[in-house]
Amino acid sequence: MRLVFMGTPVFALPSLEALLRAGHDIALVITKPDRPRGRGGKLAPPPVKEWAERHGLPCLQPGSLKDSSVLTALSQVEPEVIVVVAYGKILPPEVLKLPPRGCINLHASLLPKYRGAAPIQHALLAGEKMTGVTTMLMDEGMDTGDILLQEPLAIGEEESFGSLQDRLARLGAELLVRTLKLWERGEIHPRPQDHTQATYAPPLQSKDEIIRWEEPAERIKNLVRALDPAPGARTSYQGKLLKIWRVRALSGPFGGVPGEILGVDPSGIVVRAGQGAVLVQELQLANGKRLRVAEFLRGHPVTPGVVLGELK
């Protein structure tokens, strides 16, 4: 099938690869503009652009999809369908109406749960045991279109955002190829979402990265998982930024106050939570390396009784 692919981050790459491998004619790739990256602020291309260029696919990076040149470019390649995977921008009505077979989006949740930009992180924050991927026929709403196909996926007890994102990306790529095959044959009947069951997953903000030690241990554990491998859950130790990368929730009665370091040994640092405690197993001081506790303690003695808190 002749198609236009819209996507930006690493999550979109398995889908792009799978579509090309399945023999689809990718007439054009549209991705977001290059952005400054690193300390020098040098412009760097998004992963989808790099991949498209390596495979000789034409690539467009408009600042806005409402630019008339975008609609002209789309009209010229005459796609049967537009495929969208984590593009990062809303499609205007004139784009949605252009391809005869519509615009199909791959979303990393079982819609209508977790509509929005950060479904994987919010599923982890909520302590979900199951998630999945959905292909849907796009409309003018935010992830409100009719569902085409869905595939569930169990979330591992200790799974981080990074590993779950990778698994969902691969599963989504398979579902997307299957969707297009059946859609082309007319063998899928779109079904409306139950909007009364919708939940939302907006982008996480900087304040959402702060560990609030008065919360239950399980909630803290889920925050740490949701922010690994980036940007990391953060707290402070004696006035210095401390990122926490891996914890285990502990139940039972504990003394002290929330955030207080109760015990230290090479297997972990026990920190009091609002309910229970967490065993910190991997952490990182500002300008340092991400280390397991045993390595960390060799260069950074940690004192029981100190209370971790919000960095001012």
Rank of each mutant, 00 (worst) to 15 (best):
K243C: 04
P253C: 00
K181Q: 14
E174S: 14
G41R: 05
V10C: 00
G309P: 00
G40H: 05
I261C: 05
G276R: 10
L204D: 08
Q238L: 15
E78L: 12
P266I: 03
D166F: 09
P47I: 06
V85W: 13
F161I: 02
G186C: 12
T135H: 04
T8F: 06
L250N: 07
E174Q: 14
A108F: 11
W213E: 08
Q238S: 15
R2K: 14
V81S: 08
V84Y: 11
S68P: 15
H195K: 11
L28W: 03
P14T: 05
G56C: 09
S236Q: 13
P112F: 03
L28R: 03
E53P: 03
I210Y: 10
P266F: 03
P9N: 04
Y200L: 01
I104M: 07
I147F: 04
A18F: 12
I269T: 01
L308W: 08
G268T: 04
F296D: 10
G252K: 07
E50C: 05
G274D: 03
L311G: 00
P62S: 14
K89Y: 08
V70N: 10
E184V: 01
V95A: 06
G156E: 06
T144H: 14
P253I: 12
P229Q: 12
R191Q: 15
R167E: 07
R290Y: 03
R219T: 15
L57R: 13
K221R: 15
Q205Y: 06
K312S: 11
P253K: 14
G172C: 08
P304H: 09
F254N: 06
H107M: 06
E209F: 14
I120H: 00
S206D: 13
P79S: 11
G38S: 09
L148D: 03
G172N: 10
G309E: 06
N287W: 11
S64R: 13
L57W: 04
L149G: 09
L149N: 01
L110Y: 10
P47G: 00
K221Q: 07
P33A: 03
P45F: 07
W245I: 00
R115E: 06
D139I: 00
G276V: 09
